[in-house]
Computed example of a mutant assay.
Amino acid sequence: MGLRIAGTAGRRILMLIVLLAVVFAAVEVLPGDAASAAAERGESAAGIAARRHLLGLDQPLWERFANWMTALPTGDLGTSARGQKVTELLADPLPNTLVLAVTAFVITVVLSLLLGLWAAARPGRLTDRIIGHTSTAAFAVPEFVVSAVLLLVLSLWTGWLPAVTVTGGDGKPASWTMLIMPVLALVIPQTGWNTRVVRGALADQASAPHVEAAHLDGLPLHRVLLHHQLPGAVPAIATGMATSTGLLFGGAVVVETLFNYPGIGTVLAGAVAARDTPLIAGVVVCAGAVVSLVLLAADLIRHAVLGDRA
């Protein structure tokens, strides 16, 4: 088991390193750079060149990437194009995004399991079809469309919720109600996806010999679902749920920008506009670390369940 954990963790770390290399390369091919993006109107070419040298942009890409990666194990995420430590810039937004993402993830897991089990309890019936079609439609709608509809209905039409997030002196949302629409914007598409995953995993288990034997023994349907189908479906469900963490962080970039939520999505949008490679890489490594940990947990759950069954 120890070797399996080490091997899985090693693959996740390698994937994160490759992703960071892609980020550095992608920013490099964008027009302009951090020095020109931060230049003031009328600034001379010599001034821009001096700033480019100060930021190390005159060094080869591979050298900048190697220097950044060398400092990463010490917790140093580099210095932004504005001269601030990236760790300081992410100290407040990262916890805000984690609150948003964790809340959305927990709600997604609960709703997906309930809806998937409800549909599986009535295979082929009207309830199963309605849940199936609704979940497919929910997943097909992008987060920015869901956000726009929520803003229109819950803010502009009814006035129930504030349209934008107002932060307090601590950099956090001033009221918990300001989390409702951003969380819903993330939950709705991911609940659609994971409901389909849960329903499909339970359907695959429905034809297993031990499940058919449980039906023949006359066990109640809810007992068959919870004690015979669901345990065998756990590996597929865990993988689907873990995949949602990456989609949640991706959706957070759009949702946080639309609702003016003070998270890393807003920071990332500004960093891309400023061509601020260290800040972009810092956001990516924080989000990637969280996603990698969740994927690692899902891998361990899958190995543990399949190992017990073997």
Rank of each mutant, 00 (worst) to 15 (best):
S147D: 10
G250E: 05
L225P: 07
N194L: 08
H227T: 13
D276G: 01
D170A: 09
S44N: 02
A50T: 15
P142Y: 01
V255L: 04
V29E: 12
T167Y: 03
H133I: 08
A208C: 00
V198A: 01
I280R: 05
G218S: 02
V149F: 02
I180T: 06
V146Q: 03
L14C: 10
W193L: 00
W176S: 05
Q205T: 10
P95E: 00
W62S: 07
V183N: 11
W157S: 11
R64P: 01
V109R: 02
D58Y: 07
A274R: 12
R41P: 11
T243S: 10
S44P: 08
P182K: 11
G7L: 14
A163E: 10
P278R: 11
V109E: 02
V294W: 05
A185I: 02
L90D: 14
V166Y: 13
A163Y: 01
H210W: 15
P262G: 10
T127S: 13
G47Q: 15
G75E: 07
P278K: 10
I180W: 00
R12S: 14
I5E: 05
R64F: 09
T191A: 11
G192M: 04
K172W: 15
T79C: 04
G10C: 09
A81N: 13
T136A: 14
H227N: 10
G56K: 12
L55M: 10
H227E: 08
A50G: 06
P162D: 03
V197K: 02
V99Q: 14
A101L: 03
I301F: 00
L57Y: 14
G159T: 06
H215S: 12
G218K: 02
Q205K: 06
G307E: 03
R64A: 08
Q190S: 04
G2R: 15
I301M: 05
L14D: 10
M1R: 14
L295C: 02
S147L: 07
V285S: 01
Q205Y: 02
G232L: 09
V187S: 00
L115D: 06
L126V: 12
V294P: 06
G56W: 11
V149Q: 01
G83N: 04
G200M: 06
W176H: 01
A140L: 07
T136D: 06
A121L: 09
I48P: 08
L115S: 02
L186W: 07
G124F: 07
Q229K: 15
P95N: 03
L89I: 10
V164R: 10
L184C: 10
L150F: 04
T158D: 00
G47S: 15
G232D: 01
S135A: 15
D308W: 15
R52P: 14
A242W: 04
